[in-house]
């Protein structure tokens, strides 16, 4: 995959006091943080801390009640999910959301949508330009599947591959959109130890290509092992952030998790 070039010390994503309310519940409470590129940043916190809500707010599935989200310095709050994806943020879901009526390869080809152009007329008449683009889409999808170790299963129906493969496929589909920022929502939930380790290696491999990753995860072993930075949420507010080893020792974090 192509290496991504950024200036050092630049901020790729910044949230400013975002608040997200559902009825009386404040799922996110004046949450502010910023994220530097080329890092794996983990967002952790007990159940209901607002981690998934945060991902939904960043990707435009929800629109925050107040506050601002800046992506590469540009405000993105209020944009629709497809517009945010086009700007370079892609995600996976806690519950795998594949197009199960399609093959593994086709899922990745769909992921290429925001980076390709062919429209209705091209589709109807399969002009030469459309066929060229289609060939490129297929080739790039195959390259991606190869990177994710899924090429041998390219023509399987996506519903028929293992959970671990489905999770990897979802990441492959997200990467097909050539994101600057990749959001992973519990990528190892439901995986066994061996599969979890493989997923950890894969995430590190992605980071080595220059990919910026936000990881929402409950598996502390994984989080502490691969993260460059950890942000801890509790009741929708940030109660701490820092290097993983610092967060492990932080009294507030321990308290939030153990409830003492």
């Amino acid at each position: 995959m192509p290496e991504k070039v950024f200036q050092q010390n630049q901020t790729i994503l910044e949230t400013r006091e975002i608040t997200m309310r559902f009825g009386g519940l404040e799922a996110l409470n004046a949450l502010s943080f910023s994220i530097a590129p080329h890092q794996i940043v983990s967002v952790i916190g007990p159940n209901g801390a607002g981690k998934t809500t945060l991902l939904n707010a960043i990707t435009g599935v929800y629109s925050p009640n107040s506050g601002e989200i800046l992506f590469r310095g540009m405000p993105i709050s209020g944009l629709k999910p497809f517009q945010i994806t086009a700007r370079g943020i892609n995600r996976t879901f806690q519950q795998v959301q594949l197009f199960s009526n399609m093959t593994v390869l086709e899922n990745v080809m769909v992921g290429m949508h925001p980076r390709t152009k062919s429209g209705f007329w091209d589709g109807l008449f399969h002009f030469a330009s459309e066929r060229r683009e289609e060939k490129k889409i297929r080739e790039k999808a195959e390259t991606l599947l190869d990177f994710f170790g899924l090429l041998p299963k390219a023509y399987w129906m996506s519903a028929h591959v293992s959970i671990a493969d489905q999770k990897r496929l979802e990441i492959a589909r997200a990467m097909a959109g050539e994101p600057e920022l990749l959001l992973l929502d519990e990528p190892v939930a439901g995986l066994n130890i061996r599969e979890t380790e493989a997923m950890g290696d894969l995430i590190i491999k992605l980071k080595q290509t220059g990919q910026t990753i936000i990881l929402v995860e409950h598996n502390m072993h994984l989080v502490m092992g691969i993260s460059d930075w950890v942000i801890v949420l509790h009741h929708g507010a940030k109660i701490g952030e820092g290097r993983p080893e610092e967060m492990q020792k932080d009294s507030r974090v321990v308290e939030a998790y153990l409830g003492t």
Binding site: T85, F93, Q97, F99, S100, M102, M109, V110, P114
Partner: peptide
């Protein structure tokens, strides 16, 4: 493909940039 995607899983389709 985009049409098939959106008819099958609209949220995933939206987040895939459709």
């Amino acid at each position: 493909r985009a049409m098939a995607a959106l008819s099958h899983n609209e949220i995933a389709a939206r987040c895939a940039g459709i």
